[in-house]
Design a protein around this nucleic acid. Structure first.
Lengths: 195, 195
DNA sequence: GTTTTATTCGAACAAATGTGCTAATATTAA
DNA sequence: TTAATATTAGCACATTTGTTCGAATAAAAC
């Protein structure tokens, strides 16, 4: 299906990207694989794209991406959870973190823990908790919640006498009854602490 | 050091790269962060580069790379620390974990925590601790140690009355005097917990 | 042999893109 | 206040870069 030259080109692109962090231009591919005409490279690129090995962005430079590359594993770190506006608004993103342990990174985001209400569960201030917003928080799980559309918090969800509570892991804090002011955001699936 | 706008730009680049697989052009950054002049973006890029957050390639398009982003981010997870044979022997590797937050991943490895001797420090059984074997463990640090060439453990290193001790974060365990039977392995630099 | 297909080249073009310069405006320091 | 610094804008320019067209060559099929 793809010729040796095409494999050669694909390989060159691969190595180039790994080395430089960005894709080569058509002319750099020329030089890299020993071709003198940009249109020859163009010709091979088209083949590679049709064969599904490459992706290109029309008229954008260095916009080649190699298909079936590793899953995108960067997930956004949210700062303050803005009132009302449900998450993910770009202005709330204060950074990104590599979290390559899951396929469906689009469902994930990270929150920096503030406060010590979960200290007894080994969740410290400044820890980064990874939250999957499409996993339902079940009884006994640790989840992220939005209270009064204002404040984001990490707590246990516990059912006590038929009612649901947000339960801290710190005796100095009280349980919070789950009512219409408490909005579940997602389950805490992982924790990262840098020291 | 870097202004909000600069963080904003860095973040935009981050997200753009994540989304598209290649870096944005100067004009795309303009549009992305709400600036009308390419030279303003140029101005901020220079700041980010001087501050070490970005790398650029002169006159090459879309040739921005975000620093401290290393593709080689898989580090080995060691199981039991085999007696004598210092680490890293392949037979001790029980898996790998992606850990992309450091440059020098070759200095790093991970240990799965066993036992609850550091529970009060929020380090639980089954947690994965990342250890940098080329960072010296200083007084007050949490480090990994090999005891009697047999048993690996995670403890505080504390100097008390001129002597060094391995100090657990759990009253049920005793301090261990550091002598020739205790061998430092490396500093615990990070912790990962999956839930 | 002839025909078809695959590959390569060269040149030219238009668009995308990084860069440089000057000036205006906003912010902060003195 | 004034002075210094930081930020933004606008414009023009030189390159880089993707693209297109036509033709030549090589390889394979017939």
């Amino acid at each position: 299906m793809v010729s040796d030259k095409q494999k050669n080109i694909l390989n060159f692109i691969n190595i180039f990207v790994e080395k430089n962090g960005y894709a080569p231009s058509v002319r750099e591919i020329c030089a890299g694989v020993g071709l003198k005409s940009t249109s020859t490279v163009q010709y091979h690129l088209e083949k590679l794209i049709n064969s599904g090995y490459l992706q290109k962005n029309y008229k954008k430079s260095r916009a080649l991406t190699i298909k079936s590359q590793n899953p995108k594993n960067k997930i956004p770190i949210l700062g303050e959870i803005a009132a009302g506006s449900l998450l993910m608004a770009e202005e709330n993103v204060i950074g990104t973190v590599n979290y390559p342990r899951s396929e469906e990174t689009s469902e994930l985001f990270a929150l920096s823990v503030s406060g010590d209400s979960m200290i007894d569960e080994g969740i410290h201030e400044k820890d980064l908790v990874i939250i999957n917003k499409s996993v339902q928080i079940k009884n006994g799980d640790i989840g992220a919640f939005l209270i009064n559309n204002t404040e984001g918090t990490i707590k246990f969800l516990r059912k006590i006498d038929g009612k649901s509570y947000l339960v801290p892991a710190n005796k100095n804090y009280k349980n919070i009854l789950v009512n219409e002011n408490v909005q579940p955001i997602g389950k805490v699936v992982s924790l990262i602490r840098d020291m």
